[in-house]
Design a protein around this nucleic acid. Sequence first.
DNA 1: AAGCAGATTAGAATTATTCTAATGTTATTG
DNA 2: CAATAACATTAGAATAATTCTAATCTGCTT
Lengths: 143, 143
Amino acid sequence: MSSSGNKKPVFNEAALADQLRSVGLRPTQQRMALADLLFGRGNRHITAEALYSDALATGVNVSLATVYNALHTFTAKGLLREITIDSTRSYFDTNIDEHHHFYFEKSGRLEDIDRAHVKLTRLPEAPDGLSVSRIDVVIRVDG
Amino acid sequence: MSSSGNKKPVFNEAALADQLRSVGLRPTQQRMALADLLFGRGNRHITAEALYSDALATGVNVSLATVYNALHTFTAKGLLREITIDSTRSYFDTNIDEHHHFYFEKSGRLEDIDRAHVKLTRLPEAPDGLSVSRIDVVIRVDG
DNA sequence: AAGCAGATTAGAATTATTCTAATGTTATTG
DNA sequence: CAATAACATTAGAATAATTCTAATCTGCTT
Ligand SMILES: [Mn+2]
Ligand SMILES: [Mn+2]
Ligand SMILES: [Zn+2]
Ligand SMILES: [Zn+2]
């Protein structure tokens, strides 16, 4: 066996735990394992089901419901961003900077587009005094 | 009772049937009723469940599965456009012109933004020789 | 007016997601 | 440094959303 595809944490535990505590979450075993899979190996666009598979593959004892709980909690705390492509494909994005996406319809893959590469002009005012919470741009590509 | 909220077709039957036949679909009772609810009363952003409720309210005999079938078939034929906001909210849009949306998070309502009001510049090339099939812009507003 | 091919429908099944009751953790108190 | 209370977390069970597939219908073709 080569060393690729290994299962060990990339971030150190203390740093991960601090990150969780800093947003008011307990660094439980399940969350630490999921946070490591999410944040310990570069930016990811991942589904709940895929993260669950990753967790099982690394031997973490966690239920799918807990994966959903963690993903939604992390999203609410601003550690993740949710991007819904269609009714069966909802991704959680570890890149929380303002940015946009290519969506490859055939493979189901998402790819980041830096915000500097998309300029939105003539944007209409939000009605009333309502404020814009987010702008999502998805460029669908047929490959 | 006033005359608002009535149930009668706005388009004439022959025109609706022709529209369906022109895209290769049989103008069945279920499709005619659904097409009338969709296209016979101005532009709509509607969920499958809401269209099903509308259909039941107008006394049409149709199952929810058939509503999904019709919505997806109409979308495949270019009569509708599907816009997914989050994993529990997928809308079918009777406005098939290229345009964008405001999404009101509190009410769950979508509102059209004319394409002329959003200018995208510096758009990155689609990778390889892949072509862009669609660009979706959703402006989320917290009201 | 059968017979056939393909289209359509809708009940059943599946998948995705959420709910809630049980369990675990931390803080407080005596 | 127990015991207890308050709150957070987990995950099995329930629900909601969507799709599958077998039965039915429709419109040719002979
Ligand atoms: Mn769902
Ligand atoms: Mn779903
Ligand atoms: Zn991204
Ligand atoms: Zn629209």
